[in-house]
Design a protein around this nucleic acid. Structure first.
Lengths: 240, 240
DNA sequence: GCCATGCTTCGGTTAAGATCGAACTATGAC
DNA sequence: GTCATAGTTCGATCTTAACCGAAGCATGGC
């Protein structure tokens, strides 16, 4: 009892099936209206309204008014991280029959995690940047190096897209299906946006799947070459 | 509704104040008996017993029988990761008056996260290993490099302590107070154990604080030198 | 064998909150 | 202005589950 954040309150908020459904729907990254979320969660509009007020109060989601519509979205990377962590746990362990990730192969491959790229390709992007020294772990967290910024510019990312706003521009996000990190934060968002802008891939409407074209997949593999498996000694092979 | 792990169930499990209290207590890393946990959560033994059965069923904790005692502990890194993520969110955002981390400075400095070192010193250890190439992000996740293993051996860590058991020996764990990664997994546990064996620090009983001696703190700074702040360009300074 | 201790199960009480429809408010379209 | 649509608030119902004490099983000490 000496130190206890409101973890129970936040968890209880996510613990209702209707609210959990809404949050999962919001993991697609796009803002949704109250009516859409009500439908997504399978409850009446009045019920949904109450839930949304609670989520808002708990700081898990944010709202933006536009005319007579209200668009709800996840509050930020932190909130998305909690959901992703829970999905990682529930997907890997708590599921009905231990399924280590999403059943849909396309979701495993590439999906949206709040606003950045996750799944196998998300992890590959992250590791590729890290291995080439474009991304480094400094004292103040994960940052883009000098070369990393040059690379980003060459990739078609504007300076302000990665430097504006509040500090944590690079974040790691533990991947639900891969159990490894991928790049989140402002930089993660910028890379996904650039990939879409190049026409390599597009988000499928109403789903978290990021669909790559054949050309896009090829170009991605060149821009973010996979890190060779045994560049470093893999301890996993030694033990088991 | 196309894809939804049991996130609501897991969250609801953590969402009860009594169960949350138990889980937080278990973040200290040591296994506790049902009676101790009942006291920790402030409920009757019968109530606690019910809660523990639920947590067990949900896969969040594991149990080990020893005589007429039953020792409960967190189920693993995944479970601990979920709790830490929730504490990070609730501590930073949902708290009564936005306090970015634990109020106790000692907890911010160095604490136990399930079984490894967290807090400022945990992050420093992680980044120091990463900066020197002892820890690398390979295709199969975070691994100790050749040099990293040599370093670990020189630090007094036996080979089997980092190579035995199941694969994920190195894990990142997003730090509650620092919002940065620290080293978890089997390797994280081994480093904390070695630090304790060297007498640099000891865990305070009944708390998550890891208390370093003056000598220990000095030795730690030499073994894991902090990464210079501007080794890489800090984007955080540019924006704000 | 006996008793003490650690934990579980059972029954009954109580409180919290999820749910809905209906009435109400606010905004935009016409 | 009027009407339609998006969202909120209200009141009533109902399910869920947290809680406790007492009784019931185990296990270990003697």
């Amino acid at each position: 009892m000496t130190e206890s954040p409101n973890i129970a309150r936040t968890a209880a908020l996510i613990g209702d099936p209707a609210r959990a459904g809404m949050l999962i729907a919001l993991m697609r990254g796009q803002a949704l209206t109250a009516t859409e979320l009500a439908h997504e969660a399978g409850v009446a509009l009045s019920t949904a309204s109450g839930h949304l007020a609670q989520l808002l109060d708990g700081g898990l989601i944010a709202v933006r008014k536009s005319g007579r519509h209200k668009y709800f979205a996840l509050a930020g990377e932190d909130a998305a991280g909690v959901i992703e962590a829970l999905m990682g746990f529930a997907g890997g362990t708590g599921g009905p029959k231990r399924q280590p990730g999403p059943r849909d192969p396309a979701l495993r491959r590439a999906r949206v995690c709040y606003n950045h790229l996750a799944g196998e390709m998300g992890v590959q992007l992250y590791q590729s940047l890290l291995a080439r020294g474009f991304l480094t772990a400094g004292q103040s967290g994960l940052t883009l190096s000098r070369q990393g910024r040059d690379f980003a510019h060459g990739f078609g990312i504007a300076e302000q897209a990665i430097s504006g706003g509040r500090p944590p521009h690079c974040r790691e996000c533990l991947d639900w299906s891969m159990r490894q990190s991928h790049l989140g934060g402002r930089a993660g968002r910028a890379f996904l946006a650039a990939i879409e802008a190049k026409g390599w891939a597009h988000r499928k409407k109403g789903s978290r799947v990021v669909a790559f074209t054949a050309d896009g997949q090829r170009a991605f593999a060149i821009a973010f070459p996979p890190v060779p498996r045994d560049e470093s000694l893999d301890l996993g092979r030694v033990g088991a």
